[in-house]
């Protein structure tokens, strides 16, 4: 694994995605934030700050998810179909290096996008009395971790299925990942062993994305402790590493036609 190759691939992916009008979604975010402040604030007397925070953080996750799923699902496949990948892999570049570079490039795009959206969000909360809190930074960080895991999921699917299927499967993992604890609890309430085993398997096969969801805590002013941040970081890193290793194993067996 050569750092220079991975860095070059990540930088190339970052440039490509940033110039591919991805940042227009940031404008959508700004519009959503302003609209939520203007429309919902008069309806929620005394809870304006909570509304702004809740809508803002949810919009960041959803817009980030859109970018990861729709850019990530076609990223590797498009290069395979158009043949760009052949000129890259005909150089002394390993297939795992290629995947890691692509993953880091898209993660970098996410980080930049979240930074811009976060800046806009903080600006708006500063204008809403009593809304600003340093907990927001922790929420941004956890949102980034969640999207980094989803990014690894989409890279994995994009190495084995078509872009459309990769997008559908990744959205499925996002939904199940947020419901995995509930699915497990539901299974425990069942009497049949089959259902119990099935829900346990689903729980362990999908990342528990609720660990990254601190919107409720931020809105209600609860403390987000350092142990939670450390645990979430380790959890996200393990899932991303596992998925990238799997992607590498699948991708190294693929036939790439010029």
């Amino acid at each position: 694994m050569t750092r220079r190759h991975v860095t070059a691939l990540a930088r190339g992916t970052f440039r490509e995605t940033v110039r591919d009008r991805v940042f227009y979604l940031v404008a959508v975010f700004g519009f959503l934030m302003l609209a939520s402040t203007a429309v919902l604030s008069p309806l929620t007397v005394g809870a304006q700050a909570k509304i702004v925070t809740d809508v803002g953080l949810a919009a960041m996750v959803l817009l980030g998810l859109l970018v990861v799923v729709f850019v990530g699902s076609g990223m590797v496949r498009k290069e395979m179909e158009k043949g760009t990948i052949t000129t890259i892999l005909a150089k002394p570049v390993g297939r795992r290096e290629y995947l890691l570079g692509k993953y880091l490039g898209l993660s970098l795009t996410m980080a930049a996008m979240l930074a811009v959206m976060g800046g806009m969000f903080l600006l708006l909360t500063l204008m809403s009395p009593g809304a600003f809190s340093l907990r927001f930074v922790a929420a941004f960080y956890l949102t980034f971790l969640e999207l980094a895991v989803i990014n690894a999921v989409v890279v994995f699917f994009s190495t084995c299925v078509s872009p459309v299927l990769a997008a559908i499967f990744t959205l499925g993992v996002f939904v199940v990942g947020h419901l995995s604890q509930s699915i497990r609890d539901f299974g425990r309430l069942q009497e049949g062993p089959l259902m119990q085993h099935l829900t346990t398997v689903v729980y362990y096969l999908t990342p528990n994305l609720e660990i990254f969801n601190v919107r409720g805590a931020v809105v209600h002013g609860d403390v987000i402790g350092t142990p939670h941040l450390v645990l979430a970081t380790l959890y996200g890193a393990c899932w991303a590493a596992l998925l990238l290793l799997l992607s590498g194993a699948v991708f190294s067996r693929r036939e790439l036609r010029g």
Partner: peptide, 15 residues
């Protein structure tokens, strides 16, 4: 030590 040109070269549109 090898140079390769594919049949239909396609690169990143935005670079």
């Amino acid at each position: 030590r090898i140079g390769y040109l594919p049949e239909r070269p396609y690169f990143f549109d935005y670079l």
